[in-house]
């Protein structure tokens, strides 16, 4: 325990003196992403923006990456870790279902039916339209 705690200040010192060491530290990168998200939430509140802070943060980071102002190596390990464990972050929200016993009824059956039928519609419709578009653009290219 003491050894893992003592690495925190030494990590901070090495990050402060050698910013490029950020590219090796997954946890520091996660902290950077949390800080960007937090700052974006404050921006949203301050200027009453209609988008969620997380989406504002997404566009900010995307812009910084495309303009090469932010090297991808400085956050990509942390980003991959967060996305790898995305399930862990939304399962606690899914468990809210235990507080809705009223859904264990005909309403629940109707909800399930709406989800299943809707999903078949979305998948088939999207695939067919994209396939048609693909055939159309291939035919136009060959002419």
């Amino acid at each position: 325990m003491s050894s893992s705690l003592s690495t925190v200040p030494s990590t901070l010192i090495s990050l402060a003196t050698h910013p490029s060491s950020l590219r090796h530290n997954r946890w520091a990168q996660v902290a950077v992403l949390i800080a960007i998200w937090f700052a974006s939430e404050m921006v949203r509140v301050r200027w009453h923006l209609p988008l969620p802070g997380s989406v504002i943060g997404f566009f900010l980071v995307w812009l910084l990456l495309e303009t090469r102002a932010l090297p991808a190596a400085w956050i990509e390990r942390g980003a991959d870790s967060l996305l790898n464990h995305l399930v862990l972050f939304f399962v606690p929200a899914m468990l809210a279902l235990v507080g809705h016993p009223e859904l264990l009824s005909f309403t629940g059956v109707k909800l399930l039916a709406a989800i299943l039928v809707g999903t078949v519609i979305v998948m088939s419709g999207t695939a067919l339209v994209v396939e048609l578009g693909f055939l159309w653009s291939a035919r136009r290219a060959s002419r």
Binding site: I34, P52, S54, G57, F58, L60, A72, L83, F90
Partner: peptide, 13 residues
């Protein structure tokens, strides 16, 4: 659940 916010930012990668 709060970590969904930073995870959304991470989709930029």
């Amino acid at each position: 659940i709060f970590l969904l916010g930073p995870a959304t930012v991470a989709f930029a990668i």
